[in-house]
Design a protein around this nucleic acid. Structure first.
Length: 628
RNA sequence: GCCAUCGUAGCUUAGCGGUAGAGCGGCUGGUUUGUAACCAGCAGGUCGGGGGUUCAAUCCCCUCCGAUGGCUCCA
């Protein structure tokens, strides 16, 4: 907001004509006069939008200061658009004007000239040294809040788009009047959706994503209104699924050769290195006060791993040097309207692995090694590649010109055409990144896997290695999330079940993630002892027992609603024959098999995926309900 | 953060100026069941929090909190 303050003998105005943005006024405001006053000409600006309370309070303070210095008791507020080339919307402007009036009216006689009218006015300026002052009021935002410069810069970032195909050919694309020019997407519908999403041209269905009701209905995850938005609660089944995914991803990353570490979740806001990095990362952070210093919560593992790497002694023989941490949690204060279910959170679990590489050649080579790791992890989670996720590459113009070969290698390795965004300038610490994106049925894109080439932080953090010639060098650093946030993996799996259902396929989770893998279902009380003994034979299988007194039909229905992959009904017949009648999810008929046959089938299904015990009591009669 | 919509029992929801009704779930009793819902009874509500208008507010207004959609953005 800009203000021009004039110590006046008088100011008089008369309303002449309405402009299209005029506020409604009654006759009393149509003309006004004030003598011996401070005239405050005011222009509310674009940057004031959404910050009305701060602008009003800081503006009022400036006015008070001036009024006190020159000793006036009367104030005339006068909207004056010509003070600024970048005006706010009229609604904000009126709110600010009214706010200033309200703020000052208790201590001064205040008049306000109406907003949005052509007016004639007569002004007499006293002309003493303090009689004319202009001020710019820039609201600071909340106290202590630091906004990343990368976040601000991002708004002005300009880029061009293309499709890079598996032959290495780049097709430049753009959207004109809703039509895409430059590439035929008929074979790549999801990639088209990805592009439309990125360019804000996607047609959204406006429906709530199905995973939200699923995560509640299946007692996996829920909102916790007692916390901050985007910080969730996990019920036993959700915790188990999340735990298994965490175990799996971490194990795979260790097998790739990364050294697992753990680092603090909070860092000194005034540490020069950290502070400068903060401004290169496009995110908002939680800030908290400790008894001694102001700290922020990490939004990735970078801080801890880089501070550790700074203190390490590293030889070129140790490169590529791979570090890994499962961040529980990473925190980002996403804007309120950006949060949804498990898709976008303020506290999330991100597997984060950095690789220190000697030079660009080493980095490019290592990125491909890690891409294979990521592909293998995603396939293990039963998300099929490349069909089910879309590859997006982003880089600076310079990188494209100098390292085009690398972009083509990535696309070839992925196995289908990818979207490429080229930035005209570099705003971030990385010069190139790729992502695997999940496109949900309503056209929203969510990034899972991502790896970045970072050319800044080696130097920023003073991370050094000694090369063959005994010279100290800063490494290039890769930042990989090999699966994407664990919550987002769960989001993807749940969204996929909803998609299955819409195609008439019975929805289910991957077998190794099913909270109950097999349910034993005694027909009557008489079989309970037999069933309990039977359950004991299935080691390493999550078997539970429906010992409620419901009818068989009802027990089946309940088990089906829980998506249980194997349901075995045990009545007099099965006890007598020592066989099992098994209902296998997705198959039409029941199958009769022996316990051993079933055991080997289940063990084959489990494969080498991580295993955990039942997250709830084995007997259904002993289970509380967490939701509804 | 902005704009719009929404918030009624544990869950899903009806009612919308005159003081709240259902289904599911829970509890109790009966039933012991053969492949997607057994029967009956009972308990359960500061109608998201606070403030205001009104003789009277779940209903109208303000505000805060929470949720969803859109904008923007990301793992």
């Amino acid at each position: 907001m800009k203000v021009l303050l004039i110590h006046s003998d008088y100011l008089r105005y008369q309303v002449k004509k309405k402009t299209p943005v005029a506020e409604e006024i009654d006759d009393s405001m149509k003309e006004g006069e004030m003598e011996e006053c401070l005239s405050v000409f005011t222009a509310v600006e674009k940057s004031d939008e959404g910050r009305v309370p701060e602008v009003v309070s800081e503006g009022a303070e400036v006015i008070r200061d001036t009024a006190e210095k020159i000793g006036v008791e009367r104030i005339m507020l006068y909207p004056y658009a010509h003070l600024s080339p970048d005006l706010s919307d009229p609604k904000t402007a009126v709110e600010v004007m009214k706010g200033l009036e309200e703020e000052l009216v208790n201590d001064y006689t205040v008049k306000r000239s109406p907003f949005g009218w052509y007016k004639a006015f007569q002004l007499s300026c006293k002309g003493h040294p303090l009689s004319e002052l202009s001020r710019e009021i820039v609201p600071e935002g909340k106290k202590g809040e630091v906004t990343s410069k990368a976040l601000v810069a991002e708004e002005s970032l300009e880029s061009t788009w293309g499709v890079l195909d598996t032959d290495g050919e780049l097709h430049e694309i753009e959207i004109r009047d809703g039509k895409i020019e430059g590439y035929n997407f008929s074979e790549q519908k999801n990639l088209e959706a990805m592009f439309r999403y990125e360019t804000g041209e996607s047609k959204r269905t406006g429906e709530e994503p199905p995973h939200i009701s699923l995560m509640k209905r299946h007692e996996l995850v829920d909102y916790e209104p007692g916390s901050d938005p985007g910080n969730l609660r996990y019920y036993p089944k959700g915790r188990m699924i999340k735990g298994l995914l965490e175990d799996y991803v971490s194990k795979k990353v260790r097998e790739y050769g990364a050294m697992e570490i753990e680092s603090p979740i909070m860092y000194d806001m005034n540490h020069p290195t950290l502070k400068s990095y903060l401004h290169r990362f496009p995110a908002r952070q939680y800030s908290i006060e400790t008894p001694d210093k102001d700290v922020f919560l990490r939004f990735a593992a970078c801080f801890g791993q880089f501070l550790m790497a700074h203190d390490m002694t590293i030889s070129y023989r140790n490169l590529p040097l791979r570090l890994y941490e499962l961040t529980k949690y990473s925190f980002r204060v996403e804007q309120r309207g950006e949060l949804t279910g498990l898709r976008r959170l303020r506290a999330f679990t991100m597997p984060d692995s950095h690789a220190l590489c000697a030079d660009m050649g080493g980095a490019k080579k290592e990125m491909l090694v890690r891409m294979d790791l990521a592909k293998s992890i995603i396939n293990g989670i039963c998300i099929d590649l490349p069909e089910q996720l879309e590859l997006v590459l982003r880089c600076t113009q310079d990188f494209y010109e100098e390292n085009r070969d690398h972009l083509v290698d990535i696309v070839k390795n992925y196995g289908k055409p990818a979207l490429l965004e080229i930035w005209d300038e570099r705003f971030f610490y990385f010069i190139m990144k790729y992502e695997f994106n999940f496109i949900d049925p309503s056209g929203r894109a969510s990034a899972l896997v991502t790896d970045q080439i970072d050319v800044e932080n080696g130097e920023r953090y003073g991370i050094k290695y000694v090369d063959e010639n005994n010279e100290e060098k800063h490494p290039i650093i890769l930042h990989l999330s090999p699966s994407g946030a664990i919550e987002r993996v769960m989001f993807t799996l749940l969204e996929r079940t909803a998609f299955m259902q819409s195609k008439g396929i019975k929805p289910e989770l991957p077998y190794w993630l099913a909270p109950t893998q097999m349910r034993l279902l005694p027909v009557s009380e008489d079989q309970i002892d037999y069933v309990e003994e039977l359950a004991g034979k299935f080691e390493n299988v999550r078997v539970d027992i429906d010992d409620t007194d419901r009818t068989v039909g009802r027990k089946i229905r309940d088990a089906e609603k829980e998506w249980i992959p194997y349901i075995a009904v045990i009545g007099e017949r099965e006890v007598a024959d020592n066989k099992l009648t098994v209902r296998i999810r997705g198959q039409k008929d029941q199958k009769e098999m022996s316990a051993d046959e079933l055991k080997s089938e289940l063990s084959k299904k489990q494969g080498k995926m991580p295993d955990r015990g039942l997250p709830l009591p084995q007997h259904l009669s002993k289970r509380p309900s967490f939701v509804g």
